[in-house]
Design a protein around this nucleic acid. Sequence first.
DNA 1: TCTGGGGTCCTAGGACCC
DNA 2: TCTGGGGTCCTAGGACCC
Length: 422
Amino acid sequence: MPTFALIDGNSFYASCERVFRPDLAKTPIVVLSNNDGCVITRTREAKALGIRMGAPYFEVANLERKGLLTVFSSNYELYADMSRRMMDTIASLVPRFEVYSIDECFADLTGLTDDPTCLGQRIRARVEQWVGLPTCVGIGPSKTLAKFSNHLAKRHGKLSGVLDWGSLSPERQTKALASEPAAEVWGIGRRLAEQLAGMGIDSALDLARADPALIRRRFGVVVERVVRELNGTSCLTLEDVAPPRQQLVRSRSFGQLIHERDALAAALAHHTAQAAADLRAQGSIAGLIGVQLHTHRFRAQDAQYHACDWQALPVASCDTLALTRAALALLDKLYRKGFSYKKVGVLLGELLTGAARQADWLAPETDPARQALLGALDTVNHRYGRGTLRLGAEAIGHGWQMRREHASPCYTTRFDQLPTVS
DNA sequence: TCTGGGGTCCTAGGACCC
DNA sequence: TCTGGGGTCCTAGGACCC
């Protein structure tokens, strides 16, 4: 029987901030979405203040003004680097693992002779000591039960952050499933939870006891797998090699509404440059490029315009210049004067990676001089920070930058922002 | 006044083919 | 009156995840 562990960081983004701000160890913290829009991470203390997940910033600004809450703009450069350190540390203790998201990973503990709970505690202790981040570990015979155990480990302080499903008696397992709503189960979102409730399936236990054949007919194979996994039959495997991405999207809302084509073009050129760099970092080329343009969807009084168009690239490419040219041409097709724009984005599709890319014998070799130029671009931007070297197109318009009024330094990735010892 | 961004998978239905 | 049965590919939409 397989054994999976799910390890995830507690209030991950906020915990990353705390590593460099020990003065905030016990205080309520929230981290905001891009553009300081809404709350996406809350510490336990912030939850205790009654702050909702997804609450718009203005709802919590009051608490901040009174000094009851510390607010951070999201700093993905910092979180991504802390994530890498956390994953490297976990890799030093488990034979195989899968990075599932920025703050969590699955590990395969099948066949290990160690007691799973002890191993879970070792993982927690090492991540805490080496990286400074608090984690919880859930262990079970399926990924879904590992997730569920992790959820229980978070909820019940008595468990000291680790729960092995296999260590519970059948009676305790039944009680645990009965104590949580079906919506807490991985793979059951709001819509499915509503439909399940209509069938009298309210708790995780109800779901575990549902007839898989009936569930399959009503909801398809995905939910059927959830039911089987809840009963300890593993249907999902550990994917330790990440499949290459199939598409890449890069878009941001603006800090303020934009009317002029040039400002849109500057923002779009910026997103395209970032997307092209991401593409090169994973060794892919794109065959298709798209641009999307949006007005502010929450401003009902404004005329709305939402447009998107695609263009096949003559040659699949990861070249910043070629992609930017194509993106700007699409923008000029889509742009209509007179609207107040809130967001622009670039989409790259038909990505080819690795072997698939080699097999594309129709694609001519990229010009070596151009390759050297792109290599230099990536090297400089990696060493001195993204955006150090960029195209002129990014600089022709202003006013589109994100709002990030509570940004912390990139303590670990920029020389000029290293933490100093006082 | 203020409400993010980036992914994946599955299914149903239509076009088309033999 | 009768008017098959599969396949594949593509797209749109819906659901989920973090």
